Amino acid sequence: MNQAESEKLLRQYYRISNTIVHFQNIPLSFDGTTPLRTASIHLIDMIGKHPEANLTELTDYLGVTKGAVSQMAKALEKKDIIRRVQSDDNNKNIRFELCEEGQRIYDGHEKYHEELYGKLNNLMDSYTVEGLASIEKFLDQIEESMLDYKSKV
């Protein structure tokens, strides 16, 4: 690959990355639900998928700090989207459950992902196993490069 082709591919990668960042900052609504940013929607998603998970487990699933999950949870509780529940076996062990609006958001997010992943799966069906393996390897290498760069700044 020559320099111009390489630069074109990297520009495309950065455009995709910037689009993802842009979407993370725009509040989303699913069929009239409370508009929320992606991080809060993903917390709702994890609570819906793992209803027995405590705060520590949710942070592990999301890859964020306990403080971040606590702040998001407080904001979602104020909006009556989730509620805090003490576990029966341990009063210190707090978990969360979805309120009615939280369930609507969870369901809307699931439907959104089904549509998105359906489109992506259709695209991937046009590639050979070897082609997909090359794409996966390339994405892994980008991720490694980004993590390496992050560790240096």
Score class of each variant (00 low, 15 high):
26 I>A: 04
27 P>C: 10
27 P>W: 13
28 L>Y: 15
28 L>E: 11
28 L>D: 06
32 G>P: 05
33 T>W: 08
34 T>V: 13
35 P>D: 01
35 P>I: 07
36 L>A: 04
36 L>T: 06
40 S>E: 08
41 I>Y: 00
42 H>R: 15
44 I>D: 00
44 I>T: 07
44 I>V: 13
48 G>V: 10
48 G>M: 11
48 G>H: 12
50 H>T: 09
55 L>G: 11
56 T>D: 13
57 E>I: 14
57 E>P: 05
58 L>E: 08
58 L>H: 06
59 T>C: 14
61 Y>G: 01
63 G>C: 05
64 V>I: 15
64 V>C: 13
65 T>A: 05
65 T>H: 10
65 T>V: 01
66 K>Q: 14
68 A>V: 00
70 S>P: 08
70 S>N: 11
70 S>G: 04
71 Q>G: 00
71 Q>D: 12
71 Q>M: 13
72 M>H: 08
72 M>T: 05
73 A>W: 00
73 A>P: 01
75 A>G: 14
76 L>C: 06
76 L>H: 03
77 E>T: 06
78 K>R: 04
80 D>I: 07
81 I>V: 08
82 I>D: 09
82 I>M: 03
83 R>T: 13
83 R>W: 07
84 R>A: 01
85 V>N: 00
87 S>T: 10
87 S>D: 13
89 D>W: 03
90 N>W: 01
91 N>I: 06
91 N>V: 09
91 N>K: 12
92 K>W: 02
92 K>F: 09
94 I>Y: 10
94 I>T: 07
95 R>E: 00
96 F>H: 05
96 F>V: 02
97 E>S: 06
97 E>Y: 08
98 L>G: 01
99 C>A: 12
101 E>D: 09
102 G>Y: 04
104 R>A: 04
105 I>W: 00
106 Y>L: 00
106 Y>K: 03
107 D>I: 05
107 D>F: 00
108 G>E: 04
109 H>W: 08
109 H>Y: 14
109 H>G: 06
110 E>K: 13
111 K>Y: 08
112 Y>K: 15
114 E>S: 01
114 E>P: 01
116 L>A: 09
116 L>K: 12
117 Y>H: 03
117 Y>A: 03
118 G>W: 03
119 K>R: 08
119 K>D: 03
120 L>Y: 13
121 N>W: 08
121 N>L: 09
122 N>M: 09
123 L>T: 04
123 L>F: 15
124 M>T: 08
124 M>A: 15
125 D>Q: 10
125 D>L: 05
126 S>H: 11
126 S>V: 08
127 Y>G: 01
127 Y>E: 00
127 Y>H: 03
127 Y>I: 03
128 T>H: 02
128 T>L: 00
129 V>C: 00
129 V>N: 08
130 E>F: 06
132 L>N: 11
133 A>Q: 15
133 A>N: 12
134 S>A: 12
134 S>W: 04
135 I>M: 15
135 I>K: 04
135 I>G: 04
136 E>Q: 12
136 E>A: 14
138 F>A: 13
139 L>H: 10
139 L>G: 06
